[in-house]
Amino acid sequence: MKEFAVFWGCTIQTRFPFIEKSTRTVLDAFKLPYRDIDGFTCCPEKSLVNNVDRGAFVVTAARNVSLVDELGYDLVSPCTGCVSNLATVRSELNANPGEKAHVNSFLKEIGREFTGEAGLRHLVPFFHDAVGISRIKQKIKKDFSGMRVAIHYGCHMIRPSHALKNDDPLNPKKFDNLIRALGAESLEFNTKLMCCGQGLDRIDRHENALHFARIKLKELKSMGADALILCCPSCFLQFDNNQFLMEKEGEKFGVPVIYFTELLGLALGYSPEELGMTSHRVDCGPFVKKWEAVTTALSRGVDMEEGLRAPVVIG
């Protein structure tokens, strides 16, 4: 496998270092050739920087990509926004030689060059495509059979598809495949692909942001989903933090929000503490407890089946 730099992004390192912890834990567990490199800046966040200064958006993203281009690495990120923003600029520059040359005329002044060759991947499609389902399955110590979870892809894991090219943008499959490989049931539900709405919190529209979170959480609660599984720090902020805020005001959902790397880590045998899951605002305890109970019940079920096959029963 080609070496890759991990692009952690601002949100994970500023607000959710425990996501970095679980990500490193699973990358180490699979002995993947990941590197930490100097020099990254904010990707930059499109809905902020692009709105104010499009040129700054393009040259900043191009500079970040040029760092991995020069090293001959690929780039992988546990943040959907980072990958989507970097890939958006890369695809635009690769499709427009004039603009690429123009951007490179700036980068040259700081000793950089954007070639646009490095692969840019989000962690979920990366695990699906580069690590592979079979290798993951081999490493599972305890799967999630009997658990019913809801996946939230996060818009920018799959869109814009012309830049990311990693899954069907309107009917994605890879995250589901991974979760099913871990033994859990991936629920189908109406709001599955609905945007989390966290962007509304970034434009001083807190009530609207809560409303967006509420719509999905309500559906999940009514379905009795054991957890919401996602892999984006903004979506995490929306469903963990904002759910917590609503619960403080008396609106109870009780839907644990679990990062993909945490779920994978649990399956590999790490404890919730080792994975930093105790730092969530919404308690993951009910999920873990149910998982333990279901696993115990299922192993009893196996005994029963053996009992059925025993000579006394058949003969």
Partner: peptide, 9 residues
């Protein structure tokens, strides 16, 4: 929200 649903559809 720049969710790109409209772009994809």
């Amino acid at each position: 929200l720049e969710c790109h649903q409209c772009l994809e559809m």
